[in-house]
């Protein structure tokens, strides 16, 4: 189910998928992390200045995400090779997923494929059971930061689940 902006809405099961990921090219996706919250960060393209800031920022914020035992996955329609160079240039060590072939298939499934053939700048927090807990579509030129994600993780109350894991 999607909202007026097309983006997948809270309460909907998050469509499962796997995509090739940096740094090693193996396929990964949210279903591999059941029991943990997963943050899907869709972004338009590697190398555009705003994107660099957003993914670099999430790398710097990784200790905050780790407090919730959350997994962060970046997703764009760029190829694995572009992702690899981009991740290296920005010091990004979390997986960047290549929604490259068939182009944008996963992005469409989450309702964030744009007429320009890119992903919108959307954030989706998937709860440990695999349902969408929070979603947010940012204007393409605005880096949405991490505050909304961390608030959504707070709402999940995953602090307790971390200790049980």
């Amino acid at each position: 189910m999607t909202g007026p902006d097309g983006l997948i809405r809270p309460g909907t099961p998050a469509p499962d998928f796997t995509l090739p990921a940096t740094p090693d090219g193996r396929r990964t996706g949210p279903g591999q992390f059941r029991g943990r919250p997963v943050v899907l960060a869709f972004y338009p393209a590697d190398w555009s200045p705003v994107c660099g800031d957003q993914m670099a920022l999430y790398q710097a914020a990784m200790p905050e995400f780790a407090r919730y035992d959350a997994v962060v996955l970046g997703i764009s329609v760029d190829s694995l090779w572009s992702h690899r160079a981009f991740a290296e240039a920005r010091g990004v060590r979390f997986p960047l997923l290549a929604d490259f072939e068939p182009k944008g298939e996963v992005t469409r499934g989450y309702g964030v494929y744009t007429p320009q053939g890119q992903a919108g700048r959307a954030l989706v927090v998937v709860d440990p059971a695999g349902a969408v807990a929070w979603s947010y579509l940012s204007p393409a030129e605005v880096n949405p930061g991490a505050d909304g994600i961390l608030d959504a993780l707070d709402q999940l109350g995953t602090g307790r689940q971390v200790t049980a894991r």
Binding site: L57, N143, G145, D147
Partner: peptide
Amino acid sequence: TGGIRSGVNG
């Protein structure tokens, strides 16, 4: 941490 929680985005 306070910055991240406040929406510092760069």
